[in-house]
Design a protein around this nucleic acid. Structure first.
Length: 512
DNA sequence: TTCCGACAGTGGGGTCGCAAT
DNA sequence: ATTGCGACCCCACTATCGGAA
């Protein structure tokens, strides 16, 4: 199949607003793909590379290359070239990658270049990714969409399922069951604004502490232990403590879901930055493990002794977990009977925060494990802080925000009467707010030269954030974590905005 | 007819490791 | 030695479609 066909379909998908139309377009293309093209075409149209990321980003792609006049590239040729690209490493590899990318782009037409650009940067922006591709695949093969989706979650990969389906038809879906040693997409949580709201929604539920670390899925099959992240990357080699802990457990075959975190000498959780830095260290793991030891803490069991527990109610899965995993290696929790018992849930949240953790996750007791879904039966509750800050500058948006000032630079007052930038945010704005702030900020602009528009520091905005973190980049030595706009405060003058001093006083746990 | 769940898009800060400077 | 870049960790929120209620 020619790459030009994919590029054209991707454009048509982007132009279609109806999901059903997007699905139909993808299904038609998948149906036409030859067997050898399928493992390439399907991931490409889901906005994904079969090889994973290739070490090619905006910088390498930034240099314009004269496009080819006629489309001649086939998807198999593209795949072969990207395969070579992925294998390049060592001195001179940057130049070699750039050369290969240039070769590829030079053979592509303008439309094809645009498609490849999106694919390589992971931003296809056609309003259709995995979920829509799954529907298209189901349509193309005559398999029920729900079963295809479930197979993809259990295989942890769309390609694998696509290959099997196109080779053997819908019957192939039978093969995709939870298998120890093969990671499945983890279940995710929604947010709730309070414990009361969460308990109201879920009724009888467990309230569990939410640890601020890295999600892990641990598979043990006899002596073999594998540890995977939320995106199913294998990080076994970086976490010897987790492997050791899994081998200590009194079971030969199991799959557990949990979090890996680091505690200091007093048993207080270290900052996310410290834990994530440790988990990210892969060269000298022994040293990293000595300096920042980590512990696994589990909260769910997906499989124990060959029994697949996914469809069991959480209460039963947790009973299995408790049989296998001793209490110190499980998250703290309390069970409440319903809204009449909200007080106990709130006390548990307060105690959890007192111990230095992030918040709680409230979980319905009768819900199954919805692999790969953001299940409505898991609700996280974290405290939210707010500040009144001053807009120092704004950046022009992209995509559907093109032509709008989107990303705000946020400042707090300093002792000398100036402002210190604490981070940026593009979150929380409605379309109406985007339009309004674009107009208002242009009135305040002192420099509209580049993609950053600097403004007179006069506009006050209320910002919600999750916490403060140490920053090597911003002048106050701290930055806001997950900042988002709540509303503009036109009733406030910049002299009434919050100060850096007050912010630091409110977060004694963080020192710049 | 209205409501709500699922998705995609729009980017945020930090750290690590590698290659280039 | 330092800098630049890409890959991944963590993530919030809004708009939209389409099926559920």
């Amino acid at each position: 199949m020619l790459l030009s066909r994919l590029a054209r379909v991707s454009q048509e998908v982007a132009a279609a607003s109806a999901r059903s139309r997007k699905i139909a377009l993808l299904a038609e293309l998948f149906r036409d793909a030859e067997a050898d093209d399928v493992p390439i075409v399907i991931p490409y149209l889901a906005g994904r590379l079969p090889q994973g990321r290739l070490g090619v980003g905006w910088k390498v792609l930034g240099r314009p290359v004269a496009p080819a006049a006629e489309p001649t590239l086939t998807v198999r040729e593209v795949d072969a070239l990207l395969g070579r690209l992925g294998g390049v490493s060592g001195p001179g590899s940057r130049a070699e990658r750039a050369r290969l990318v240039g070769e590829l782009l030079g053979a592509a037409t303008e439309d094809e270049q645009r498609f490849l650009f999106g694919l390589l940067t992971g931003e296809v922006r056609q309003g259709a990714l995995d979920a829509v591709a799954v529907e298209g695949l189901a349509r193309a093969t005559g398999a029920p969409a729900a079963e295809v989706r479930r197979a993809v979650m259990l295989a942890g990969s769309l390609q694998t399922v696509a290959g099997a389906l196109l080779a053997d038809g819908p019957a192939a879906l039978e093969r995709f069951r939870l298998t120890v040693g093969r990671p499945v997409l983890p279940m995710l949580a929604h947010s709730a604004s309070s414990v009361a709201e969460a308990v109201e929604k879920l009724g009888a539920c467990a309230v569990e502490e939410k640890l601020d670390g890295v999600r892990i899925q641990v598979h043990r099959d006899g002596d073999t232990v594998r540890v995977h992240t939320r995106t199913l990357d294998d990080i076994t080699d970086r976490l010897p403590e987790v492997t050791a802990a899994a081998r200590e457990l009194p079971g030969e075959r199991f799959v557990l879901d949990g979090e890996v975190v680091s505690f200091d000498a007093d048993g207080r959780p270290r900052s996310f930055q410290e834990t994530a830095g440790r988990v990210g260290s892969r060269v000298d793991v022994a040293t990293a493990a000595r300096e920042v030891p980590v512990s696994p803490v589990f909260f769910d069991a997906l499989s124990v002794d060959g029994r697949d527990l996914l469809d069991l109610p959480f209460a039963e899965r947790h009973a299995e977990l408790a049989r296998l995993v001793p209490e110190p290696l499980r998250v703290r929790r309390t069970v409440v009977s319903g809204p009449q018992d909200t007080g106990a849930a709130e006390e548990f949240l307060a105690a959890t925060l007192e111990r230095g953790h992030e918040g709680v996750v409230v979980k319905g007791l009768d819900a199954p494990y919805s692999a790969g879904r953001r299940g409505a039966s898991w609700l996280k509750v974290k405290p939210v802080h707010t500040l009144d800050l001053v807009v120092l500058a704004a950046e022009w948006g992209h995509g559907r925000r093109a032509g709008k000032l989107s990303n705000l630079h946020l400042g707090a007052r300093t002792a000398d009467g100036g402002f210190a930038m604490l981070g940026k945010t593009f979150k929380g704005m409605t379309d109406a707010m985007l339009a309004w702030q674009t107009e208002r900020l242009r009135e305040l602009a002192v420099d509209e030269g580049g993609y950053v528009v600097t403004v007179r520091p006069e506009l006050v905005v209320e910002i919600a954030y999750d916490g403060l973190q140490r920053s090597p980049r911003y002048p106050a030595g701290v930055a806001l974590r997950f900042a988002r706009v709540v509303r503009y405060r036109e009733d406030k003058r910049p002299e009434e905005a919050d100060t850096v001093e007050a912010l630091l006083a409110a977060h004694p746990e963080v020192r710049p």
